[in-house]
């Protein structure tokens, strides 16, 4: 996703490319991978975010803002060194699995394996039990699962596992709006900036803002999630999208919210956009707000 979409469908290639036998992948390998990534993501904040925070600490004009940014860098250094969670909100675990279509998963139930991985990682990494088993009954499940699982079937014979830990201080400030084609880029701009403005100090700025544009109601929200976990040093392949990201970032940083909402010129570290084709009648836009501890990690099996 994210590349310019072709205007006609790709032809699936013929039977000649089929492998003689599928590659077996044990779901227990997926369990262990999820557990390991969950712990690592929580103790070791990505270099991309750390670099962005260090740079922001140099550029921030507010003295208090600079002080806060330096504290955040010190916190992340400490967490890495002592192997403790950087933040006490170790998040709702979001797992993306891209499963090669030549893979045969064996040895148990995939979803159960993912949740067992979340349980193991939470125990091994001393993470917080942050999940209630029912949104209305609100009893803590006591193992930090279940997580949210997104599965895609892709070409190939490997499995790509991405684990994101999403804190809810920022998740709560996310929004989606079904714009109309006439609203255009101006409408997108207004909605994104308004969403960050409403998030204000509560979502742990400096933020990483993930924006999904297009698709359907549910895909748009997922695009925004994929945007928020895109590494900050991996820019969008399309030049016009990169320009929109830059313009939105500049506008957001004029809001004055600043680090932790205490004023300044660094309200966001990045705006990441992902796009997908949509209906002739629609222009869905979703904004997934990410806090400064944008935790995610991936691996191949």
């Amino acid at each position: 996703m994210g590349d310019a979409q072709p205007l006609k469908p790709k032809e699936p290639s013929g039977r000649a490319s089929a492998p003689l036998s599928p590659r077996l992948v044990w779901v227990d390998d997926i369990r262990r991978t999820v557990a390991r990534l969950l712990v690592e993501a929580n103790v070791a904040i990505g270099e991309d975010v750390l670099n962005a925070l260090r740079q922001a600490a140099e550029e921030e004009e507010s003295e208090l803002g600079r002080d806060i940014l330096r504290q955040l860098v010190a916190n992340y250094d400490l967490a890495r060194r002592e192997r403790v969670p950087a933040c006490q909100d170790t998040g709702l675990t979001i797992v993306f699995l891209e499963i090669g279509q030549d893979v045969h998963l064996v040895g148990g139930d995939l979803r159960a394996a993912v949740d067992a991985g979340i349980r193991d990682g939470t125990r091994d990494g001393f993470l917080r039990n942050s999940v209630v088993g029912d949104p209305l009954g609100r009893e803590n499940t006591g193992y930090n699962g279940p997580g949210v699982l997104h599965v895609d079937i892709v070409p190939g014979d490997r499995v790509h596992v991405t684990v994101a830990c999403k804190g809810f201080g920022s998740e709560n400030k996310s929004r989606l709006k079904m714009l109309t084609p006439a609203d255009g880029v101006a409408g997108i701009r207004d909605f994104v900036v308004e969403t960050v403005d409403r998030a204000g100090a509560q979502a742990c700025p400096p933020l990483i803002v993930g924006v999904g544009i297009g698709g359907s109601f549910e895909l748009c929200a997922r695009l925004a999630k994929q945007a928020v976990i895109r590494p900050l040093n991996r820019r969008h392949p399309r030049e016009d999208i990169r320009r929109l990201e830059d313009e939105l970032l500049e506008e957001i940083n004029r809001l004055g919210i600043g680090p932790q909402g205490m004023g300044g010129i660094r309200t966001a570290l990045a705006v990441n956009i992902e796009v997908y084709p949509t209906h002739i009648a629609g222009l869905p836009v979703a904004v997934n707000i990410g806090c400064h501890s944008n935790r995610h990690m991936d691996a191949w099996i």
């Binding site: 900036v193 403005d197 506008e251 004029r254 809001l255 004055g256 919210i257 600043g258 909402g261 004023g263």
Partner: peptide, 14 residues
């Protein structure tokens, strides 16, 4: 309110 003061001081756009 520190947050309101901060925003009044630093806001440039909108």
């Amino acid at each position: 309110d520190l947050y309101r003061q901060a925003r009044d001081r630093w806001r440039r756009g909108r």
